Computed example of a mutant assay.
Amino acid sequence: MAEAAAPYGYDLSSHRARQIDRDLMNWADTILAMDASNLTALAELSDRDASSGLALYLGDRDVPDPYGLPGAAFTDCIEMIVAGAARHLQRPDD
C-alpha cells in the first residue's frame, strides 16, 4: 500500500498497524471502519453505534481489502479512500 500511495503524495513509511482496544476507542471521537465486518466487531467491542461516532467509511459500502491482489487493486482502494474522504472532513467554513 505504501508503494501504491506514493504517487498520490502519501508517505505511509512510518505507518504501523495497531490492534484496537477499548482505551483507544474511548480516546477517539470518530471511528471509521473500512468494511462491515470490522464495523460489527468494533461495535461489539465498544457498545457504540453510528450515532456515537462509529461508522462505515464509505457509508453504504465496503472498501475492499487489496491484500494479496495485484497492484491495480491497491490503486483502486486508494482512489476509493481519497474519494470518500470528503464526507469526513470539515470544510473551513463549517
Rank of each mutant, 00 (worst) to 15 (best):
S37A: 09
G59M: 01
D23R: 13
A4D: 01
P7Y: 04
A43S: 14
D21Y: 02
G9S: 08
A72H: 11
E79V: 03
G59Q: 02
D11M: 11
G84V: 07
P70F: 00
T30I: 14
L24Q: 11
A73F: 10
D65T: 06
C77K: 10
A72K: 11
S13L: 08
G68V: 05
P92S: 09
A36W: 03
M80T: 00
C77S: 13
T75M: 05
R22Y: 00
G68Q: 08
D93Y: 09
A43P: 01
A6G: 00
S51F: 04
A36F: 08
L45W: 07
G59H: 01
R87L: 07
Q19G: 08
D94L: 02
G9K: 08
A41G: 00
D11R: 12
T40F: 03
D65L: 03
R61T: 12
A43N: 04
T30K: 11
T40C: 00
Y57Q: 06
D94N: 09
R87G: 13
L42T: 01
G9N: 10
D94G: 13
D11S: 11
H88A: 07
E44I: 00
R16I: 05
S14C: 02
L56N: 05
M34C: 08
P70E: 10
D21T: 04
V82D: 09
M1W: 15
L45A: 11
G84H: 12
N38K: 07
L56H: 02
H15S: 09
M80L: 15
A55I: 06
L12N: 05
N38M: 06
N38Y: 09
M34L: 13
L24I: 15
A5F: 15
M80W: 15
F74P: 02
M25I: 10
D11C: 11
A43D: 10
E44A: 10
A55S: 14
L45G: 03
A86K: 14
I81E: 01
D23I: 04
S14V: 07
W27K: 15
D47H: 06
A28C: 15
Y67I: 12
L39F: 04
G71L: 05
G9P: 13
Q19V: 12
R22P: 01
L89Q: 06
R91N: 05
R91A: 14
M25P: 01
V63I: 13
S37V: 05
